[in-house]
């Protein structure tokens, strides 16, 4: 048992190391160097002189041997230093920490919403499997989830913000406003975040809905459900303890595992709604070829996915007692 846990920790640490190494190696494997682009920002042919290049190389330590660069990169990371943004001339960590909460806010709200709504609709569908309501839900949700998020986003933005003017067109908060209390501030934030969250939720609803529907359908057919009925248990107890408790297992795993891809989805949606999260930052960084920043964002996103995975592992174990003993058996 202990041994298994130890193995898990080592697995995760190795993964982190691989990600960090890739993150270090990939930009360096690309042709050219950052200073070529930096000098090309304004699309003027202001090429740095050889001396200036040399200066920058030394400044950023790029003239040192690879292994030394790698070691100092690792050292910096351990201290939480993601480097210095060449374009913004600011610490990458600071920039990312400023933007990260917005993306997390979008992703977490979406996850909660779509898990609850998706499971609910899926359960309802499973409950009245085959009748009109089930077919209606099935058809519509699958259709919606097949439409790319940015198209849904554009459509929603166009209708609700541009045409109806119900929601702001961009941003996460109103500019130049002082809030009289935290409640007003919260309302303002929710007002801005509403459409991006709705878009993301809609785009991701289908998967959870299908999963919940299948999961409940398969649980309903299990023998232990007949046992529960034979025991004369109340409907509520059967639904909660026997159906949902079991049907939840795959949904929980899927929820955590999908956090990573949701960050990807958020990047697109943030661009549509001009929402100041990591996604928008990434787009900006790509536009100006700010490698340090891109590297930093990649690393944070990758770590986020990994943490989500770890949480899925830990939480699943808590919900499904069969997991532990399987591990024991394989150990």
């Amino acid at each position: 048992m202990k041994k298994v846990r130890g193995m898990r920790v080592i697995e995760y640490l190795l993964t982190v190391l691989v990600i960090v190494t890739l993150n270090f190696a990939l930009p360096r494997a690309m042709p050219g160097d950052p200073f070529l682009v930096l000098s090309d920002v304004e699309e003027e042919a202001a090429v740095l002189t050889e001396e200036q290049r040399q200066y920058y190389f030394e400044l950023y330590g790029l003239d040192r041997p690879m292994h030394k660069q790698y070691l100092s990169y690792l050292g910096d990371l351990l201290r939480g230093d993601l480097g210095h943004s060449i374009y913004y001339n600011e610490s990458v960590t600071t920039i990312i920490l400023r933007r990260l909460p917005w993306t997390l806010f979008l992703v977490i709200s979406t996850v909660i919403l779509r898990t609850i709504i998706g499971s609910l609709l899926g359960s309802i569908s499973a409950w009245c499997r085959g009748n009109f309501f089930d077919q209606f839900l099935f058809f519509n949700l699958i259709t919606i989830s097949e439409i790319p998020a940015f198209i849904t986003g554009l459509l929603i933005l166009f209708v609700f913000s541009a045409m109806l003017g119900l929601f702001p067109l961009a941003g996460a908060m109103s500019h130049f406003t002082t809030y009289s209390n935290w409640w007003d501030k919260l309302l303002d934030i929710l007002h801005h975040a509403f459409l991006p969250i709705v878009t993301l939720t809609l785009a991701r609803l289908g998967g959870i809905y299908l999963l919940a529907r299948n999961s409940v359908v398969s649980v309903i057919q299990k023998d232990y459900l007949l046992t529960a009925q034979a025991k004369g248990l109340s409907k509520g107890r059967i639904l909660l303890w026997h159906i949902l408790r079991n049907a939840m297992l795959p949904i929980v795993t899927r929820t955590f595992l999908s956090l990573g891809s949701l960050v990807g989805g958020a990047i697109l949606v943030e661009n549509v709604f001009n929402y100041p999260g990591l996604g928008l930052l990434m787009q900006e960084a790509v536009n100006v070829h700010d490698y340090t920043l891109i590297q930093g964002i990649f690393l944070v996103v990758a770590l986020f996915v990994l943490i989500a995975n770890l949480m899925a592992d830990l939480i699943y174990k808590h919900f499904d007692p069969r997991i532990e003993s399987n591990e024991e058996a394989t150990a």
């Binding site: 299990k222 023998d223 232990y224 007949l226 046992t227 529960a228 025991k231 004369g232 248990l233 109340s234 107890r237 303890w241 026997h242 408790r245 079991n246 297992l249 919900f319 499904d320 007692p321 069969r322």
Partner: peptide, 19 residues
């Protein structure tokens, strides 16, 4: 299959008594 995999057997035995 006739027993609920995520509930302890104690729980499943006393469940009908809870009524």
């Amino acid at each position: 299959e006739v027993l609920n995999p995520v509930l302890t057997i104690g729980e499943q035995i006393k469940e009908p008594l809870r009524r």
